[in-house]
Design a protein around this nucleic acid. Structure first.
Length: 406
RNA sequence: GGGUAGGUGGCCGAGUGGCUAAAGGCGGCAGACUGUAAAUCUGUUCUCAUUUGAGUACGAUGGUUCGAAUCCAUCUCUGCCCA
């Protein structure tokens, strides 16, 4: 049942950032199927790239025989984790959270299996957090936390000058309690999360040790960042979502196709299941050739999230636009209905290329818009029959944003 | 509870009665250069109409004034200090 030690896989691919007990963790993976947990905050109705690495790790772990517990933070989301935030989050209603939990479940299913011997399970911490009695909780758990220690954690230190409420500070207690609960209920021995979760994770590990158990561990993985250290996955529209209605497979594909050279290796290792040898040879490509590696990365990553069919479509659309070969059918398409013969400005708005007419004009004035590969410099230009000669017109913003108008 | 400093465009941050749709930076978008990369340089970045123009906007509400982001009042939120 247990195959290769997943520790080596995670290590080799560079997932691991910090660990509480490296030797013990490795040994544990070796000798048994380890129930481990990864937490996800249901703050939106879709996961985004920030969760991607977690899901990949969960998948690797499960393939090596360990049991994933996906914890959805329905209870903690009512507070909001202060880590990395400059302001307190908006509080969410329970209805919103429940809706989000449902949506997230569907996406998680693409990465871990809920069948078989080491089937994954999904739990929601609202099931145990919402019924807690304040005094009992404080007597039992609150006494085991040192405020001095908590204040020295980065996630709180940074907030000291901008303000931090007690409400938010108790987030660490709850997340730690989650781990304790899962430890007791499912024998969960390991909490994993992004590196920004480090202080919350060691909080849980410490808590379990304080109640007298010594076999709890924590591990964090690398956050996806650009070489300037910014979080990866931000686009002009906000986050890069895993839900195809929020971020189309084509956009998703293009995001990875356009990543900076320096990130290719990381992205291939962290976000695909390609064998390490393949990745090494791909990312050793230099200069212009690195584009081949980016194509592979974009395809593989899109395939994981949206399935092979969508990945092929995205790839074909990209080929059609950038190399002239391939299939135009899969390009993002906007149906203008009966209003085909509108001004170029209106067409830009209708296609969703720019949000306002002013911006549309700026684009045209700066030479950023072309129609069927001809630059349109006149903002009064009206679309006409000849623009739809092939039954469609291709409108292009800059070099990379295309829409087919029909 | 007392004192004090504040709340400005996606973010940071100037601005203390008219020349302010509001400096500068970051971020975004486009152009040039390229490899659908990075770096760099240039332009642009509230909305509507574009020729000048109009509307909305500086925590909220009311007021003073020919005129307010700027002055006054009340409210509200936040930091810091004291208790």
């Amino acid at each position: 049942m247990i195959k290769k030690n997943v520790f080596d896989i995670l290590d080799e691919r560079g997932y691991i950032e910090q660990m509480t007990h490296p030797d013990e963790i490795k040994e544990l993976f070796e000798k048994q199927s380890v129930p481990f947990y990864i937490g996800i905050d249901p703050t939106a109705d879709s996961l985004h790239v920030g969760h991607f690495v977690s899901l990949m790790v969960a998948s690797h772990m499960q393939k090596c025989g360990h049991k994933p517990i996906i914890l959805v933070g329905g209870g903690t989301a009512t507070i909001g984790d202060p880590s990395g935030k400059t302001d307190m989050r908006k509080m969410m209603t329970r209805e919103m959270i429940n809706h989000n939990v449902e949506c997230i479940k569907k996406q998680v299913e693409k990465f871990v299996s809920f069948d078989g011997e080491n089937a994954a399970i999904i739990v929601n911490n609202s099931d145990w957090l919402l019924d807690l009695k304040f005094i009992d909780f404080m007597r039992e758990i609150g006494t085991l936390f040192s405020v001095n220690k908590m204040l020295s954690a980065d996630c709180y230190k940074n907030r000291l000058d901008t303000g931090l409420t007690f409400f938010e500070m108790s987030y660490m207690l709850m997340q730690s309690y989650d781990f304790l609960h899962l430890y007791e209920t499912y024998g969960c021995k390991l909490e994993m999360g992004g590196n920004d979760q480090w202080s919350n994770i060691i909080g849980g590990v410490d808590l379990i040790r304080k109640v007298g158990k010594s076999d709890s561990y924590g591990l964090t993985f690398k956050l996806l960042t650009t070489k300037e250290g910014k979080k990866m996955g931000k686009t002009e529209k906000g986050a890069l979502w895993l839900d195809s209605t929020k971020t189309s497979p084509y956009e998703f594909y293009q995001y990875w196709r356009n990543i900076e050279d320096e990130s290719v290796d990381t992205v291939l290792k962290l976000l695909t299941f390609l064998p390490i040898e393949t990745i090494n040879s791909l990312s050793s490509l230099k200069d212009e050739k690195i584009n081949d590696a980016k194509k592979v990365a974009a395809f593989e990553i899109t395939k994981l999230v949206h399935g092979e069919e969508e990945a092929i479509k995205a790839q074909e659309a990209a080929n059609a636009l950038f190399t002239g070969s391939g299939n135009l059918d899969n390009m993002p398409t906007v149906d203008l209905g009966d209003n085909k013969f509108v001004s170029i400005i209106d067409a830009i708005i209708l296609a969703g290329i720019a949000p306002s007419k002013g911006q549309a004009r700026t684009l045209v004035a700066q030479g950023g818009i072309s129609l069927n590969d001809e630059k349109i410099a006149d903002s009064a230009y009206m679309l006409s029959e000849k623009d739809f000669e092939n039954g469609y017109a291709i409108i292009k913003k800059g070099k990379k944003v295309f829409f087919k108008l029909v």
